[in-house]
Structure formats: C-alpha cells, structure tokens
C-alpha cells in the first residue's frame, strides 16, 4: 500500500518542488495551501506523514495545526515534519511543544527531504506494526 503524505504549504512554488521531489518515491500525495484546509483533509485521507509549513497566513499557522494533529487520538500515528524558513531556537522549542517529529529548514535540499520522509515513514511503520 502506498504511503500517504499530506503537504500543507502556502507557497505554490514550494509545494510544486516538494511534489516533484516526492514523485521520485512511491507515495500518494495530497496538498493543501493553508492550515484550515490541511486539517479538513486529514479526516478523509488519514496521512502517514504531514509536511507542514510553519508560517502560513490566516487562521492557523503550522504550530497550531501540529498541536491539533497531535491532540487527536485518531491521528496518533501521523508523523509531522515542520518546514521552516526560520530555524530559530524559539521555533524549535515551539515545534517541540506542539509535538513535531522533525524539522526541515528552508531552503532544504530534495535529498534531505527524501531522506527525512523515508526515515519518518520507516519509524512510523515500525511503531504501528
């Protein structure tokens, strides 16, 4: 069964690049361009992993989406990788508080992205077996 990945990122260019990179792997990819849209999609697709941008305009930013995902027992096994352009210590702390599993600091390399996604999905599979 293909692993399901949800990309939540407001910048269309970055979303395209992530999709292009992940198309090298055998994943089922879904996209949302804001936090609220991402949360709505979660229920239907139940992704194995979320790539979640931190700074998004509108009602919910990445940390808030992450908090909600991690607070929902039905999504307990979903891995969350935060995408941040900031990489500041306060962000890492906020991410840890929200329950993020990993961080990628923009501009990240496609190799780094693939390696992080693979590692997270392996970890997730090992835990759910």
């Amino acid at each position: 069964m293909k692993k399901i990945i949800l990309i939540v990122e407001d910048q269309a260019d970055i979303r395209k690049l992530i999709r292009m990179t992940l198309e090298f792997g055998d994943y089922e990819l879904h996209e949302a361009d804001n936090g609220v849209g991402g949360l709505r999609m979660l229920e239907g697709i139940k992704p194995h992993l979320m790539l979640l941008d931190v700074m998004m305009p509108g009602e919910l930013d990445g940390f808030q989406v992450c908090e909600r995902v991690k607070g929902d027992a039905r999504l307990a096994s979903t891995r969350v990788v935060m995408l941040t352009a900031r990489g500041q210590q306060t962000d890492l702390e906020a991410g840890n508080r929200a329950g993020a599993d990993a961080y990628l600091t923009k501009p990240f390399s496609p190799l780094e992205l693939i390696d992080t996604v693979d590692a997270m999905l392996e970890q997730q599979a090992a835990e759910t077996v």
């Binding site: 407001d10 910048q11 260019d13 970055i14 690049l17 990179t21 936090g35 700074m55 998004m56 305009p57 509108g58 009602e59 919910l60 930013d61 923009k106 501009p107 390399s109 496609p110």
Partner: peptide, 21 residues
C-alpha cells in the same frame, strides 16, 4: 493586524533555492 504569517508574494521562490533544487 493580519492574522498569521504575511501572505507570500507571487513567484517568491528564491533563485538560490531553485538552483539548489
């Protein structure tokens, strides 16, 4: 004040980032 992060401008992908990609 605008809620959340500022909206990204169109075509905001950094040239360096595109080259690296």
């Amino acid at each position: 004040l605008p809620a959340g992060a500022p909206s990204p401008a169109e075509g905001q992908l950094d040239l360096e980032q595109a080259k690296r990609y």
